[in-house]
Design a protein around this nucleic acid. Structure first.
Length: 817
DNA sequence: GTGGTTCATATTTTT
DNA sequence: TATGAACCAC
């Protein structure tokens, strides 16, 4: 396809208002920048690497650069390609650019995530890789499902060769921009020697389904660029300036993509921090950022080293830890801020005690008991290495009634009910979406099990049609009897009816040259008359008439109400789109957890989830060898793994603005078994001058190492390792820390705990009353003690819970959180 | 086809 | 420990 005529039309497109408004004024956005930031902003041409340490104002610099490009280089907003990894980052950048310009920035169509931009590109050139432009995007779950089907068809024992493993290989290849033909022979042994073969089959199947997975979005676009010079040239000319955020997280495919696009003018500015590369296991290549100057000869490297976030103690601790890594580009972070408190280090007996102590500290900080100004819970965070660590905190906070929020977990669009609902929308808007059909055909239960579904499959295959059409044939032939047959007939009927409601009659395609948007090469789309019903209403109708809403209304599990709530939210989200298609094209990439909350809560999240965030008070629990650094990382990736863990430690510490508290425990329950733990080797890397040891004397003295030795009798190497670890624990650094430790008591229990009793809550429950709890589900009150209730839960057993976390069962909709 | 059982399994998860 | 998937009996 050739878009050159259209391209030429864009070159003459009128100058956006924003730019005219800008050029009249001076450049106020440059004033607030420090010299390094300013240099990075003002070097508009040629390759630039902005090495931005944690908290050095890289987003500020990046946004200022965008504005400066429009202002000084007279770049039109649509000629700037700005890529991020997350939607959140993209959104923030959009907002901040808009803020600097003093107007909303609708005119930056190419500011987005790698994936979102690739979707846009791929929809335009889909046919070059054998797709139709309305392809569907499969998420990980769909991907696994599909692979399972393939493996089953080949009678592969999925115990021994699980689909997940195959998905891992395939993702790995896609991350490296390798199509099946290009997989190197070194990888031939993958997946029992059949990895490449299955990869090829999977890709073929995806094309048949007109579908792509996340990895394909990049892979296909890279393939197009590599095989179609004309297309590549178009975009090379179109994107006059390229900006990349979090460059240290790019994988090979993204790297190639960028190199291809920047190939002409090389006006590319990459921003990143090699010390914050923590996604190696997802295919990210730190090498990309380390190699930048070689890849782009003559590149200007600018270091942002002034930190505006943390105190000197915190920075020193972080710098000292990260100094243990080899082959860094190196930065010297400094700050003008006041000294503040040292990084605090404390050991505990076990995870429960750790959670209890942190809970008390949080309360003390919140009430200002600690002799400081009170801190809002919103300004505190607990950052863990692995999500299973969260449980101890949740349990503890639930019992003491401390409001918390878990960040991360399944994303909105990954939830079962959302995916089911979306499958309904998909099958209605594109009836040949077989995957969607498979998902919903027996959801809710329609009495259509394996056998019935096989019949549909066979009918479809025999006639070379989609599953929906196959189902229609089955219904017409009455091949399925009884309840199932009747239900299937009803479903097919429903699908027809809903599809008819989606759109009005088809209208002749109109190509209106003047109406072409100026955001790049365009393709025309068929048009339809006006729909008879708004897509929002239609969505509700689909969910109701299909019986899906009722399915969850009848659901007895504690999740039921929440799922209905999510469905409501999904329908609400539809309002922002023009139609169902538009929604589906974007939703898989943009829906995220948008729970905006009112009350102050402490955040609990993983270290990975915390990247890019900052909090006045940060707690880093679980610094024990094996947990952090994670044993698995070290086993699988050796020194590389350990270094990535160390970067994770660096990320964790640098999230803290004022107070950073690191803790470890002597014992921890691992897979149901108690294990004695040794303090993390990273603890030894903390600089003693910047650390205050809070561990009470006697608790973790010499007997700690002895306990570790006593347990390690299982094998020679194991024993050796433990001896070695024990030596680490007794290392000079640790001994010095012990020697300097403060003898003060651990912390006073927060008194506020017993003072604040919510009287309304106390009186509102009675013995035997049926209640609902968000985490534990339904239960009966069997004991009342002040504001605490003892509840026998139907699923979760007997628990003591603060009454305001519980709602009367008949009012489950009004749970106050 | 559903529901209960057993058995294996056990990081991190931007899209 | 505790969760999910797979299998088997109704």
């Amino acid at each position: 396809m050739s878009n050159f005529d259209e391209m030429d039309a864009f070159e003459g497109a009128s100058t956006p208002l924003s730019q005219r408004a800008m050029s009249a004024r001076p450049m106020p956005y440059l004033d607030g920048l420090n010299p390094a930031q300013r240099e990075a902003v003002e070097t508009l041409y040629g390759p630039v690497l902005m090495l931005a340490g944690a908290g050095t104002g890289k987003t500020k610099a990046l946004t200022a650069r965008i504005v400066h490009l429009m202002n000084a280089a007279k770049a039109r907003p649509n000629e700037i390609l700005a890529v991020t990894f997350t939607n959140k980052a993209a959104r923030e950048m959009k907002n901040r650019v808009g803020g600097m310009l003093g107007q909303s920035i609708e005119g930056m169509p190419w500011l987005g995530t790698f994936h979102a931009i690739c979707v846009k590109l791929l929809r335009r050139h889909a046919e070059l890789v054998g797709l139709k432009s309305n392809f569907t995007i499969l998420d990980t779950d769909d991907q696994i499902r599909l692979l399972k089907q393939l493996l089953r068809a080949e009678s592969i024992d999925d115990k021994r060769w699980p689909a997940r493993m195959l998905a891992g290989f395939i993702d790995g290849w896609k991350n490296r921009a390798l199509t099946p033909e290009k997989v190197p022979s070194a990888d031939a042994g993958a997946f029992n020697n059949r990895g490449t073969e299955f990869y090829a089959m999977y890709q073929k199947r995806l094309l048949e389904l007109n579908a792509v997975d996340f990895g394909d979005l990049l892979l296909h676009v890279v393939t197009i660029f590599q095989t179609h010079d004309d297309v590549l040239n178009q975009y090379q000319r179109w994107f006059r300036y390229i900006l990349v955020d979090e460059y240290q997280d790019t994988n090979v495919a993204q790297y190639l993509w960028l190199r291809l696009l920047a190939g002409g003018h090389k006006n590319i500015c990459c921003v990143g921090d090699d010390d914050q590369s923590i996604y190696g296991w997802r295919g990210a290549e730190v090498g990309n950022i380390l190699r930048f100057e070689k890849d782009f000869p003559g590149a200007k490297v600018v270091r942002l080293e002034q930190n505006y976030r943390s105190t000197p103690h915190i920075l020193a601790a972080a710098s000292n830890v990260i100094a243990g890594n080899e082959g860094r580009l190196g930065k010297d972070l400094w700050t003008a801020s006041e000294e503040g408190e040292k990084v605090r280090l404390i050991g505990h007996w076990d995870g429960e005690e750790e959670a209890r102590w942190i809970g008390e500290e949080l309360e003390a900080m919140q009430s200002g008991t600690r002799g400081m100004n009170p801190i809002s819970l919103n300004d505190m965070a607990i950052l863990v290495r692995a999500s299973h660590q969260m449980r101890a905190f949740e349990d503890r906070f639930l019992t003491i009634g401390l409001p918390y929020r878990v960040i991360g977990g399944p994303r909105f669009y990954e939830r079962m009910e959302i995916r089911d609902a979306m499958a309904y929308f998909r099958i209605v808007t594109s009836p040949d979406d077989d995957l969607a059909f498979e998902r919903i055909v027996n959801t809710p239960k329609r009495g259509l099990g394996d056998k019935a579904q096989q019949k549909i499959q066979m009918a479809a295959r025999a006639n070379g049609v989609s599953l929906v059409e196959g189902a229609r044939i089955v219904v017409e032939n009455k091949a399925i009897g009884g309840k199932g047959g009747a239900e299937l007939a009803k479903l097919v009927d429903g699908l027809d009816r809903w599809a008819a409601l989606t759109r009005g009659p088809r209208v002749a395609t109109i190509i209106d040259d003047d109406a072409v948007l100026d955001d790049g090469p365009q393709m025309s789309e068929p048009e339809f008359g006006p729909p008879e019903m708004s897509h929002v209403e239609l969505a509700q109708v689909i969910l109701d008439e299909s019986g899906y809403t009722a399915h969850w209304q009848n659901d007895k599990t504690p999740e039921g109400p929440g799922r209905l709530e999510n469905l409501k939210e999904l329908v609400k989200a539809l309002e922002q789109f023009e139609n169902l298609q538009g929604f589906l094209e974007h939703v898989s990439l943009i829906m995220d957890n948008t729970q905006e909350d009112e009350a102050a809560k402490v955040s609990i999240m993983t270290l990975h989830g915390a990247k890019g965030l900052e909090f006045p008070a940060v707690f880093l629990p679980g610094w024990e060898d094996g947990l952090f650094p994670s044993q698995r990382s070290m086993d699988e990736s050796g020194l590389k793994g350990l270094e990535e863990e160390r970067r994770l430690a660096y990320v964790g510490i640098t999230r803290a603005e004022d107070i950073c508290t690191i803790s470890f425990t002597a014992n921890r329950m691992v897979f149901g078994q108690w294990q004695s733990q040794l303090p993390s080797r990273f603890i030894d890397e903390l600089p003693e001058d910047h650390v205050e040891v809070l561990t009470p004397p006697g608790l973790y003295g010499g007997n700690y190492g002895a306990a570790g030795m006593g347990m390690g009798g299982s094998g020679q190497s194991d024993l050796e390792k433990r001896v070695q670890d024990a030596n680490v624990y007794n290392s000079p650094g640790w001994k010095r820390l012990q020697a300097r430790k403060d003898n003060r008591p651990m912390s006073q229990p927060a008194e506020s705990k017993n003072i604040t009793i919510d009287m309304t809550a106390v009186s509102s429950f009675s013995m035997g009353e049926r209640v609902f709890h968000q985490k534990f589900g339904y239960g009966a009150v069997i004991g009342i003690e002040g504001d605490k209730l003892e509840i026998e839960f139907e699923k979760a057993g007997t628990k003591k819970v603060v009454s305001r976390f519980v709602a009367a069962a008949d009012a489950a909709d009004d749970i106050p959180f």
